[in-house]
Amino acid sequence: MTTIDAVLFDVGNVLIEWDPRHLYRSIFLTKDGSADEERVNWFLTEVCTMDWHVQHDLGRSPEEQVAVLIPQHPEHAALIQAFYERFQEMIPGAIAPMVAAKRQMKEAGTRIYGLTNFGVETFDDTRRRFDFLNDFEDVVVSGAERMKKPDPAIFQLCINRFGITPERTLFIDDSAANIASAKALGFETHLFDGPDACLQKCRALALI
């Protein structure tokens, strides 16, 4: 087995939790004050959709994003504005076991990189909140490159920019499509589905 000497981390739902539901559950309430899941689902499938938000991950600023969407749903302007204004409320916190493992790997001398589908402005904010997002050797942010996972080109960009060898790099991500792209380029991969299995994989590869 080849030795792994670098780890490439996805950020959202690997190192920090992210889900727009966390924000809209505090906005759409039923009469008894609990979250109105039905309206939350409606809003995120009909108004602030993932197809729309993905444009932010591809480089469109929060201001442009909101300016594009509000004319289509003028009656929901305030709710749409909340999407980026209150973006941090979509992130309830860090995934602590993964943050600890990342630190442990770094201390052991493994090179740690990031590859994230994230907008530039929102990632800047998130980095100020979570200090462990500042100690990557380097990080590629989709919004800055105007391309995103699973486009093989963004993986190629990581290979060139970081000087990593796919066969000696473990890529951890919670999206099967991203994992498939990375695997095709020769990366060692782990489809993230909770810290337990991931830590087990890291142990098997002697990373922690």
Binding site: H22, R86, Q88, E89, P92, D125, R128, R129, F130
Partner: peptide, 21 residues
């Protein structure tokens, strides 16, 4: 709590360069 911090975060972020939980 993390969630309370997320709510106040934009305001504190305007006050400091780093806002740490």
């Amino acid at each position: 709590t993390d969630m309370a911090l997320a709510r106040i975060w934009p305001f504190l972020n305007a006050l400091g360069t780093k806002v740490l939980h």
